[in-house]
Nucleic acid binder design. Structure first.
Length: 545
RNA sequence: GGCCCCGUCGUCUAGAGGCCUAGGACACGGCCCUUUCAAGGCCGCAACACGGGUUCGAAUCCCGUCGGGGUCACCA
């Protein structure tokens, strides 16, 4: 009988998948796939208040997008396993290994405060209740939790990632809650029961769980379960060293809010009013760097201070998807956060990672999440992929960016757009540069600074060139990028003008801005008629300025 | 604060006592290319946290200091 490695990913459905969670999922997935074992998915929804069906959907969607497929057809939901948990809890209680505890949250909070003031860690002490007291509490209907009676002794376990024995002294252990007053099991309990039930052999998780492990092994011992192999992954941090979370986004919004206040010379109260938010809330937030806005509040504030969805640093898998990153690139980058195949090897396909993955090459130092490098990886991958292959990725990108004018483009058009955007760093970058190609000619918005700098400056030199170019282009019969290029360059030569002096006015005329894909490919895509119409529109607009 | 974990360029890392004058990637700087933004090419800058040991020899082993992180929930 040979052992099969069985790993799992067990998120709680509280929202979209976070990159930290994705990294945990990836490592477990890689371990399973590398060894030909199984990777299972379980939903830890024992916190009724925070779990939602919507979040489950989002989680699965993110996992699918990444390609981290799971092997259990039937998902395990902890909320559906109450009977199993309760049976085991009853059994533990009847054996004296667990007991009801009646303290109220307020009482516990008070004790904690005392411990904190005394500068020691709070350790729960089981009160010695008489039978009479218990009867009294029960008849009062006082809510009770069930606590596991932790054996008071030292616990130790081996960690495969850290490569060492973790030891927790007897004075550090305490009786922990295994069933809440609402009747739901706690994480500590459900995780142990389910990992055993699902035959999990290896558990890779974030280092924030390191000390929890002793609770879990104590429970395993009490229940007669085998102990799985544990490995605790280093934490992913923000660039400023804080734990990766919402903070990076908040920081950016805060910065822009302060700029807004300074530039407009208005007050925090006016800012709050403009965003339809509570004044006190905004004032408090601005005054205290430690505070963070809720996601809904962030969304209201962003347009006011001039931020768009894509401007914030991404932290959720979904953010990266919406920003136009390729899933395999994200996976590659995430894998490198805490793991290395050794040597100079960095860029890997998913298949290569599966082949190369090994636990003893997982690192133990925390890693900061460096978006620049991810961007560089994505740029390379886009260049390597080729236009045809990127069409489905672009489709996917558009599916989560419903407001894009490229949404209606067919595959051939998308392929052309991608092809003319060589050098793009993200799908979004290509999409934004190419939007003008899909707008109605009348809907081109001429950017004031571009019009000023490229058309009006120096005695309307650009505008004059544009007028003459209209003539040249009108006379160009064969409307291909090559022919248009020849015509424009011919004109440049005869007029002794640098190409830039001519290309930029055309660019502004057709796109409204000074940035676009290479101009000749853009013009070919637009077609002669639309190009001329846009030039006419622009001529009229700029002349009136 | 107690307990636990960690510590190689700015960042991610390679490095398992001599192969290290410490390698790669990203970022950064310079130059080149160029119709914009990107992309691309070439060159360059840059680290073993500190202090003690052990050893003929230490980035690699041990101890201490310092620094960073995690955790102390009826959240997972």
């Amino acid at each position: 009988m040979s052992f099969q490695i069985v790993t799992r990913f067990a998120p709680s459905p509280t929202g979209y998948l976070h990159v930290g969670g994705a990294r945990t999922a990836l490592f477990n997935w890689l371990l399973a796939r590398h060894s030909g074992g199984q990777f299972l998915l379980r939903i830890e929804d024992t916190d009724l208040a925070r779990s939602s069906e919507q979040a489950v959907k989002q989680l699965l969607d993110d996992l699918r997008w990444l390609g981290l497929n799971w092997d259990n057809v039937e998902l395990v939901f902890q909320s559906k396993r109450l009977e199993a948990y309760n049976g085991i809890i009853e059994q533990l209680m009847s054996q004296g290994m667990a007991y009801k505890a009646y303290e109220t949250p307020e009482e516990l909070e008070g004790q904690r405060r005392i411990a904190e003031r005394a500068k020691r860690a709070y350790i729960y002490k089981r009160p010695k209740l008489t039978d009479e007291q218990i009867r009294k509490y029960e008849s009062e209907g006082r809510p009770a939790v069930v606590r596991f009676a932790m054996p008071v002794r030292e616990f130790r376990f081996h960690d495969v990632v850290l490569g060492k024995e973790i030891v927790l002294g007897a004075s550090q252990v305490q009786d922990f809650v295994i069933r809440k007053t609402d009747g739901m099991p706690t994480y500590h309990f459900a995780v142990v029961v389910d990992d055993a039930a699902m035959g999990i052999s290896h558990i890779l998780r974030g280092q924030e769980h390191l000390l929890n492990t002793v609770n879990h092994i104590a429970l395993q011992e009490a229940l007669g379960y085998a102990r799985p192999t544990y490995g605790h992954l280093p934490v992913i941090l923000n660039t400023d060293g804080s734990k990766m979370g919402k903070r990076d986004r908040d920081k950016k919004i805060r910065h822009r809010a302060n700029v807004w206040l300074k530039n407009t010379k208005r007050s925090a109260a006016e800012l709050a009013a403009a965003a339809a938010l509570e004044t006190g809330r905004i004032e408090g937030w601005l005054a205290d760097d430690g505070r963070q806005l809720e996601a809904a509040e962030q969304q209201k504030l962003m347009p006011v201070v001039g931020l768009e969805a894509g401007d914030l640093p991404e932290i959720l898998v979904h953010d990266f998807r919406a920003s136009g990153y390729l899933p395999d690139v994200l996976l590659n980058f995430l894998a490198l956060l805490g793991w290395s195949p050794g040597g100079d090897r960095e860029r890997m396909s998913v298949g290569e990672m599966v082949q190369l993955f090994s636990l003893d090459r997982v690192g133990q130092a925390n890693a900061k999440f460096n978006r620049d490098k991810l961007l560089a990886f994505n740029t390379e991958a886009c260049a390597a992929a080729g236009a045809t292959q990127l069409v489905p990725a672009m489709r996917d990108f558009l599916s989560v960016n419903a407001d894009s004018p490229l949404g209606s483009a067919d595959a051939a058009a998308l392929e052309k757009v991608i092809a003319m955007n060589v050098g793009m760093r993200t799908l979004r970058e290509a999409e934004q540069k190419s939007r003008f190609l899909f707008l109605a000619d009348e809907n081109i918005e001429y950017q004031a600074d571009a019009v000023e700098k490229i058309l009006l400056k120096n005695d309307k030199q650009g505008l004059n060139v544009l007028g003459r170019m209209r003539q040249v282009l009108d006379e160009t019969l064969d409307w291909t990028a090559a022919c248009v290029e020849a015509a424009v360059k011919g004109y440049c030569a005869s007029a002794s003008l640098a190409l830039g002096k001519v290309a930029q006015p055309i660019r502004v005329a057709v796109s409204g801005t000074s940035i676009s894909p290479p101009i000749f490919a853009s013009l070919e895509f637009l077609g002669k008629e639309r190009t001329l119409r846009r030039i006419d529109n622009c001529l009229r607009f700029a002349t009136s300025q």
